[in-house]
Simulated assay, not measured.
Amino acid sequence: MDDRRAAFETLFAEHHPAVLRYIERRVDQREQARELAMDCFEVAWKRFDPKHPFGLPWLLRTAHNIVGDSYRRRDRERVGLAHLADIERLGPETGSHDHVELAIAMDQLREPDRELLMLVYWDGLSAAETAQVIGCRVPTVWKRLSRARDALRALLDDDATLPQEVNELALDR
């Protein structure tokens, strides 16, 4: 039992920061992110076998499922203007009009496309790691990533798809 615990503590120490960052980018409240990260490691502890250890992709897949469960339990009233308010609250030195447009465009993407883009570009996962997290093959990741980038590019290129408040901000540039 002590070997199992020591192996798990090593896994926890190595991957907890990445799992927490992953979750923090997907939930609004820091305390909620900490709780969800601990929920992820609770699941990991229950399934942990030192002879067949799992790595970061498995943990991120588990975190993804836990975050999804969390969102299904609460009201899904999250729209681009909420991100606009968050960015404006941070101040002009941390947010730009381009970041506002990106946040709003990301919110308008289908959930699977948004998740894929976040895994690759925000979390820095490789195609193979991303495939493990979302449960598909590597060629599928590349195909879906291409489609997600095209969809995001279309939203960013077409000001008509963005809320009126963002179009007004663009005029102020």
Rank of each mutant, 00 (worst) to 15 (best):
R144C: 01
R89H: 12
H16T: 04
D158P: 00
P92D: 03
E42L: 14
C136L: 08
V133E: 01
G80V: 05
A7S: 15
V100N: 02
W45T: 09
N167I: 06
V100G: 01
G91C: 06
L125H: 00
P53V: 06
H83P: 00
R74P: 01
P92Y: 04
A128N: 06
E115D: 14
R153I: 00
P112L: 13
P17W: 07
R110E: 15
K51L: 10
G95Y: 04
L59H: 09
G91R: 07
L162K: 10
A85Q: 09
P163Y: 05
R47E: 14
A160Q: 10
E14M: 09
H99G: 08
P163R: 02
W58M: 11
E168Y: 04
A37T: 15
R73M: 07
D172K: 11
Q164P: 07
V133Y: 11
A128I: 04
L116D: 02
I23D: 05
I134V: 15
V19R: 00
R72Y: 06
T10W: 10
L171F: 02
D113K: 01
T130E: 08
A127I: 10
P92W: 05
R110P: 00
V138Q: 11
H52V: 03
G95I: 02
L56H: 06
D2F: 10
A37N: 02
E24T: 11
E42G: 15
R89W: 07
I104G: 00
R89P: 00
L162D: 05
T130P: 04
T10K: 13
R26E: 05
I66R: 15
G91H: 03
E24P: 00
S96I: 03
H83F: 13
V27H: 03
D2T: 12
R173C: 10
R34E: 14
H97V: 14
L162G: 12
L119H: 02
D150S: 09
C40W: 07
A128V: 10
T10F: 04
L60A: 06
I23H: 01
L84C: 05
P57T: 04
E42T: 13
G95R: 03
E14D: 13
T140H: 09
D172I: 05
V27A: 06
A131G: 05
E42Y: 12
V100K: 11
R74M: 09
L169I: 09
R26S: 12
G80Q: 02
L20A: 12
D86G: 10
L145N: 06
L119W: 01
V100E: 14
E14R: 14
R173G: 15
A63D: 08
L145P: 03
W45D: 03
D39A: 13
A33S: 11
R76W: 07
L81C: 07
